[in-house]
Amino acid sequence: MTNDETSRDAADIVSAKWQTVLAYADHKINPATTRAAYAQPRLRELFPVVSHGVLYLNRCTGFPAPADVPVVYRLSGGGFQVVRESDGVNLGEPTTLEEAFALVVANLPEGCGPAIIGTADDL
């Protein structure tokens, strides 16, 4: 398999997973969250995973995945908190999902490109 074929396969896997996540019912995740993330072209290239109502975006399709892509959490009083879990840094507390995911894009790890097939060890 060539690098082009591997990249194409990874893109297909990521695209299929996004379609699944975008179709989740609102008891799994607020659909506005997945739509706001998907609206960002750079985030659309990352592998989405939903756990406990939170959308995680990964640079690889397998686990373990690095925790270096910031995560958006809904605050109980309104607004959102964007956290880089790899070092626990709070990157900000924007008021809208659009602002939150723009902050995620602005804080992607250096060299972050489309997700690859593999785990954190393969990055």
Score class of each variant (00 low, 15 high):
Pro70Ala: 05
Leu55Ser: 01
Phe80Ala: 03
Val71Glu: 01
Leu46Cys: 01
Asn3Pro: 00
Tyr73Met: 12
Pro94Lys: 03
Phe80Pro: 00
Glu5Tyr: 08
Arg74Ala: 15
Val54Lys: 07
Gln19Val: 03
Glu99Ile: 06
Ala10Gln: 04
Thr6Arg: 11
Tyr24Lys: 01
Glu98Met: 13
Leu43Trp: 06
Gly118Leu: 03
Val69Cys: 02
Gly92Cys: 06
Phe47Ser: 00
Val89Pro: 06
His52Gly: 11
Glu98Tyr: 13
Glu93Trp: 02
Thr34Ala: 14
Val14Phe: 06
Ser51Ile: 10
Val54Cys: 12
Val54Glu: 07
Val72Gln: 02
Ala106Asp: 09
Arg59Cys: 02
Arg74Thr: 10
Leu46Ile: 10
Tyr24Arg: 03
Cys60Phe: 04
Glu93Leu: 01
Ala100Val: 07
Ala36Cys: 13
Ser51Pro: 00
Ala100Trp: 02
His27Lys: 08
Asp4Asn: 14
Trp18Gln: 04
Glu45Trp: 10
Pro41Phe: 14
Gly62Tyr: 01
Thr95Glu: 13
Ala67Cys: 10
Trp18Thr: 04
Ala39Glu: 11
Ala16Trp: 07
Lys17Thr: 12
Gly118Pro: 03
Ile117Asp: 12
Ala39Thr: 06
Val54Met: 07
Asp121Lys: 14
Gly92His: 04
Arg42Gln: 15
Ile13Gln: 12
Tyr24Pro: 01
Cys112Tyr: 05
Ala115Pro: 01
Leu55Lys: 00
Ile29Val: 15
Asp68Val: 05
Asp122Pro: 00
Val83Tyr: 04
Pro48Lys: 04
Ser86Met: 09
Gly79Met: 04
Gly92Asp: 05
Pro66Ala: 15
Ala65Phe: 02
Ser15Cys: 15
Arg74Lys: 12
His52Cys: 07
Gly79Tyr: 03
Asp87Pro: 01
Ala67Asn: 09
Val89Ile: 14
Gly111Pro: 00
Thr6Ser: 11
Cys60Gly: 06
Tyr24Thr: 05
Leu75Ala: 11
Pro41Asp: 08
Val104Pro: 02
Ser51Leu: 08
Tyr56Ile: 12
Arg59Met: 06
Tyr56Asn: 11
Asn90Phe: 09
Tyr56His: 14
Leu43Tyr: 14
Glu93Arg: 03
Tyr24Met: 14
Leu97His: 01
Pro48Trp: 01
Val21Pro: 02
Asn3Asp: 10
Arg84Gly: 07
Glu45Arg: 14
Pro41Gly: 14
Ile13Arg: 14
Val105Phe: 05
Met1Pro: 09
Ala10Arg: 05
Asp121Ser: 15
Gly79Ala: 03
Thr6Met: 06
Gly92Pro: 02
Asn30Lys: 11
Gly118Ala: 11
Gly78Leu: 06
Trp18Lys: 04
Leu108Asn: 00
Arg84Asp: 09
Val71Ile: 14
Leu57Ala: 03
Leu55Cys: 05
Ser7Thr: 07
Tyr73Asn: 06
Ala25His: 13
